[in-house]
């Protein structure tokens, strides 16, 4: 049986195709401003990998911020449910999954069966999401992909006081003027967002093992700050941004 999970995120669309519960194809594409176009392209891209067509998919489950604007989906599930199902499939010992996407941060506590026990969400404020690191990378004039590596070279901790992405941009500019190194500023940026994510996660009770998923999990500087702040080991799966789509595809297979 072939199922698809579609995670329509704020920034990227992720597709995972399963055959009998095994991943056979996946794709990631920028959503832009035309979600329909992104959807068609993303699906086609994944299907072409394995020589399948849309008609071969028996069930489609959507998740993500745009989950209700996925025409043709048989069902839509919350990111919290999808994350929980996806991560327990990857590693059954995970009890807490933290998901930091472009516009939202989530912490989910789940049981061994991948069922959600508790969750918290940071939403509608860029300070608690990937958009924060993007804005800071722009202010620092470094590519987002390099921000993580940069912060790992930091020699000292510098506090960041602003709790708003817009005010933090001005603070970064002030730090640059005060000749603070880019490395230390990058670390301060990651420490700042990690501290907000940790606080959110603690509200659901952080139980081991802990996993970090979502696009921001690719940022090694952020992972490092979060590890330090939580004072725990954190598993980052190989394709952290696909965990939600994987969960949706698994739920599609179960529901058939």
């Amino acid at each position: 049986m072939i199922t698809a999970g579609i995670d329509m995120g704020a920034k990227n669309l992720k597709v995972v195709i399963l055959r009998d519960g095994q991943v056979i194809a996946s794709s990631l594409i920028r959503v832009g401003f035309d979600t329909q176009e992104a959807l068609d392209e993303g699906l086609q891209h994944a299907l072409a990998e394995v020589g399948l067509s849309k008609g071969d998919i028996q069930r489609v489950v959507a998740t993500g911020a745009g989950r209700n604007s996925v025409p043709g989906a048989d069902d839509a599930v919350t990111e919290v449910r999808a994350d929980s199902a996806g991560i327990t499939h990857i590693s059954p010992t995970i009890r807490t999954v933290i998901d930091v996407g472009a516009e939202e941060g989530r912490a989910v506590r789940c049981n061994a069966q991948g069922k959600v026990v508790d969750f918290a969400i940071n939403e509608k404020c860029a300070a608690g999401a990937g958009a924060f690191t993007e804005a800071m990378a722009r202010a620092l004039e470094v590519p987002l992909e390099e921000l993580g590596a940069l912060s790992l070279k930091s020699q000292q901790t510098v506090p960041m006081n602003a709790q708003c992405a817009v005010f933090a941009e001005s603070e970064v500019v002030s730090l640059i003027h005060a000749r603070t190194s880019k490395e230390d500023i990058a670390r301060a940026v990651h420490d700042a967002i990690a501290s907000r994510i940790t606080s959110m996660a603690r509200r659901v009770g952080v139980e081991k093992d802990v996993a970090l998923v979502g696009g921001v999990a690719r940022n090694k500087g952020f992972v490092d700050s979060l590890r330090r702040d939580l004072d725990m080991d954190i598993l980052v799966p190989p394709d952290p941004e696909f965990v939600g789509a994987l969960g949706a595809a698994l739920i599609a297979a179960q529901g058939a």
Binding site: D118, A120, S199, M200, R202, R203, V204
Partner: peptide, 8 residues
């Protein structure tokens, strides 16, 4: 205040 306000 988060620690005094657990989600459950």
């Amino acid at each position: 205040c988060g620690p005094c306000k657990p989600t459950s």
